[in-house]
Design a protein around this nucleic acid. Structure first.
Length: 273
DNA sequence: AATCCCCTCAACCGCTCTCAT
DNA sequence: GATGAGAGCGGTTGAGGGGAT
């Protein structure tokens, strides 16, 4: 006996959204705002459930979304925040205007985590992985030897020696694509890792965050704490950068291509008010 | 050129949280 | 305080794309 489904699923559309659906949802929200997601599809004339509409808006249609690859600075910050907040993606995303929790989560799972693993660094603690075969990642079947190599590299001094920016020559051919990709994703993390402890201890207020943030956190997160406000001030000028990116990002949202210039201006005007 | 394999990311599912009653 | 509804969150999935063979 679970709870009732969020909506009557009979006759509702699923899967990828069409441009027409995007138009309907966007127009509706920008004209009417969001009161209750449950009623949105009905009022907007969509055969979707409210949750689906919400997700589509938050992750794709919101005008202030920033698109494009994560910068090294962003990746560093994600790693920092993740080491303190864990998988609380919405909290992490709150520090990245224009980025969604889903986007950050995907980026973490598909790239950052793999890279840390390749570096021989535990993604949760950011400590070097000490033992072979201790990986909890079941889908990485052939990484044990790789990991021991990279772990050793880490201990020897990742920056100076082993993390060849174009490192493909060093990788066994059989590991081709994955390794090439990962190695191309170069010094952002390792630069951070070198300075991690210093940054962590000097920039974050380890006392103030615990009270407000650990209500539902797991024990491993309770032990590490910092001020979220402080964290958002990690880099001077980062806010300005984000604001600029917000403006730049408006034109890069895929679905906006299907709106006329006039429509866009009108929509943006509404949204800013 | 065909096939395989891996990667990415949009979208879904189920659970928890929050708030109103 | 108990309950229920809606919102939000995080884990997971699977379609599609692209590189490797």
């Amino acid at each position: 006996m679970g709870r009732q489904p969020c909506c009557d699923k009979v006759g509702l559309r699923r899967g990828p959204w069409t441009i027409e659906e995007d138009h309907k949802l966007m127009n509706f929200i920008l004209n009417n705002g969001i009161q209750c997601w449950r009623t949105v599809p009905k009022l907007a004339g969509l055969l979707r459930c409210g949750k689906s509409c919400r997700l589509r808006w938050i992750n794709y249609l919101r005008p202030d979304l920033k698109r494009g690859d994560f910068t090294k600075m962003e990746e560093d910050q994600i790693i920092q925040l993740h080491s303190c907040l864990g998988n609380r993606w919405s909290k992490i995303a709150a520090h990245f205007p224009g980025r969604t929790d889903n986007e950050i989560k995907n980026h973490w799972n598909t790239r950052i985590r793999k890279r840390l693993k390749l570096l021989g660094v535990d993604s949760m603690t950011l400590n070097p992985v000490q033992q072979k075969g201790k990986s909890d990642d079941n889908d990485d079947k052939n990484k044990t030897s790789q990991q021991s190599i990279t772990s050793q590299r880490y201990e020897e001094g990742v920056e100076s020696k082993s993390m060849d920016i174009h490192g493909t020559e060093k990788m066994p051919k059989s590991e081709g694509r994955l390794e090439k990709k990962n190695m191309d994703w170069n010094d952002g993390t390792s630069g951070f890792l070198n300075n991690y402890e210093m940054q962590c201890s000097s920039q974050w207020d380890l006392g103030s965050w615990t009270n407000q943030e650990n209500k539902t956190s797991s024990s491993s997160y309770r032990s590490s704490s910092f001020s979220l406000d402080d964290a958002s001030n990690l880099s001077v000028g980062i806010k300005d950068l984000f604001q600029q990116q917000w403006v730049d990002g408006l034109d890069s949202i895929l679905s906006w291509d299907s709106f006329s210039t006039l429509e866009r201006e009108s929509i943006l005007e509404n949204y800013r008010q």
